[in-house]
Design a binder for these strands. Structure first.
Length: 475
RNA sequence: GGCCCCAUCGUCUAAUGGUUAGGACACCACCCUCUCAAGGUGGGAAUACGGAUUCGAAUUCCGUUGGGGUCACCA
């Protein structure tokens, strides 16, 4: 059996899209499963759409997911190769020069539209005299077009869909080399896949309509084709192509929103692939073992953010406290403003981890849950403080005796805080809501917070008492 | 509009001719509980429609409908 060699072929035209990364993951997993090679090929043949750091962004995203590559190529460095094969096709009569200008083509298209016909290049230079063509090429700009078959059908084999037939009369003579000398995707892609010995082409389903173009190039060059696998699309909840207007689409955005690479990896793999009817948590190692391209589904998958959140929450929940501590610290460092980050350094990050881990769906939740550490309470009215109590007197009593109780604690641990406050509740004959609820409000200034005992512990005895005193003074 | 692909709970999916059509997210109810989560228990929820083949169809075939993709000197 031939060595498995697969590739991820992004164009460096922006932030890596989550759908593309899913393709990369499938390719990578398949390569690892078959002990083959995973290549990255930067398809930068459109000079107009290049973006600054485009290549680096692609690399960074792959690295974030741990998708390491065995070889990397950049198409713009391979222009001579494409040109060579274009020349060959030219000489063999499988391609021809076209001197039609942009305006000319626009006019043609407009005319076709007006008369209700489909818009398509009319092959006007297909039978142009080769000698004349060569002569004009010395002085005039031109493109090279592929001579598509005009009769019959082109059969295309997709690994998950079977044979797909296209009527050749639908095909036009598409461009393979642009007037700036760069190849188009259709051409460079085929040439490179062949020269790089790619065994399986796993790419997005959007390529299906241009599949026959690629097949015809292989045929005219007499090249053996790789196995093609067209991956189902990832759609937005409105069932259209996932794009900016639906929210986050790039890896960077998800990272910033506080998602873990491991959770996203797991979630993304299950969009269009499943092992069986029950397994949903996989480590990368397990995935490498069980990944099977024959289990890739045909139908598109809708990107379900709730499920991603759930996955992320599970990954956080199942992580070790010190690992999670590192994650949030890292996240705070990157995405919290410096002042707040510095303020939070005053507290033990491991204690914070213990306090909030099971409450976080994303790392971003950690910001909200720890805000009280550096944001001193502010009250708008007495009522705000008294809201959890049955009456103002009770509130007063709770606050003053809480200070006494906390003061009595020798070792300020979560357990000690809990037991002393619980016995205080019994002594004062107040409900948990009265005492703990009130403390929650005056300590964190929020109705929702991590467990109050943990909050007090992290703040420390001094600061805790200070905040209670502050509330008493406000009454 | 032409061409192409697709069709199981709202969503991700399992079941490759025989299952009470399974699981997960989400939702609802109850339990637990210092709030919020987490956890536990239970619940509602799907084979788009119509034919054909077959003893038997979610599964095979045909059609209809619906959705998507694509029609550039972009990938």
């Amino acid at each position: 059996m031939k060595e498995v060699r697969v590739r991820y072929a992004p164009s460096p035209t922006g932030d890596p899209h989550i759908g593309n990364i899913r393709s990369a993951i499938f390719n990578w997993l398949f390569a690892k499963n078959k002990k083959g090679k995973f290549l990255v090929r930067i398809e930068d043949t459109d000079q107009a759409r290049l973006v600054e750091n485009g290549i680096q962004k692609q690399k960074d995203s792959l690295k974030w997911f741990g998708l390491d590559w065995d070889e990397i190529y950049i198409q713009s460095e391979r222009l001579k190769i494409y040109s060579k094969y274009a020349q060959q096709l030219l000489e063999e009569g499988s391609a021809y020069r076209c001197f039609a200008t942009q305006e000319e083509l626009d006019k043609l298209r407009e005319k076709q539209k007006k008369s209700g016909r489909i818009t398509r290049y009319d092959s006007r230079y297909r039978n142009y005299d080769p000698k004349l063509s060569k002569e004009r090429s010395k002085a005039e700009p031109y493109v090279i077009r592929f001579k598509s078959p005009q009769k019959g059908i082109t059969k295309c084999l997709d690994n998950i869909r079977g044979e797909i037939k296209f009527n050749n009369k639908e095909m036009d003579d598409f461009i393979i080399i642009k007037s700036d000398g760069y190849p188009t995707y259709h051409f460079a892609n085929v040439i490179d896949d062949y020269l790089m010995n790619i065994s399986h082409v796993m790419r997005a389903e959007e390529w299906l309509p241009s599949f026959p173009k690629h097949v015809n190039i292989y045929n005219s060059l007499n090249w053996e084709m790789p196995i093609f696998v067209h991956l189902p699309m990832i759609l937005a909840p409105d069932k259209t192509k996932l794009s900016k207007r639906h929210g986050a689409t790039s890896v960077e955005e998800f990272k910033q929103a506080g998602y873990l690479n491991s959770a996203m990896f797991n979630f993304l793999v299950l969009l269009g692939w499943a092992l069986d009817d029950k397994t949903e948590f996989f480590t990368v190692e397990e995935l490498i073992k069980v990944f099977d391209i024959n289990k890739i589904s045909k139908s598109p998958a809708i990107f379900n953010k709730e499920k991603l959140d759930w996955f992320n929450g599970r990954y956080i929940l199942n992580s070790k406290y010190d690992d999670f501590a590192k994650e949030i610290n890292n996240y705070f460092k990157q995405f919290l403003d410096i002042k707040k980050y510095k303020a939070i350094q005053n507290y033990n990050i491991n204690d914070i981890s213990i306090m909030i881990k099971e409450r976080c769906k994303t790392l971003n939740d950690a910001i909200m849950l720890t805000e009280f550490l550096y944001q001193k309470p502010k009250f708008k009215s007495k009522y705000e403080i008294q809201i959890m109590c049955d009456n103002p007197e009770q509130c007063q009593t709770i606050l003053t005796s809480s200070i006494e109780s906390l003061n009595d604690i020798q070792e300020f641990t979560i357990e000690n805080i809990e037991s002393i406050l619980k016995s205080l509740m019994t002594k004062l004959k107040v409900k948990p809501k009265n005492l703990l609820g009130t403390l929650r409000i005056i300590i964190t200034n929020q109705k929702i917070s991590p467990p109050i005992f943990n909050c007090l512990y992290i703040l420390g005895k001094k600061e805790s008492i200070k905040r209670i005193q502050f509330a008493i003074d406000y009454l």
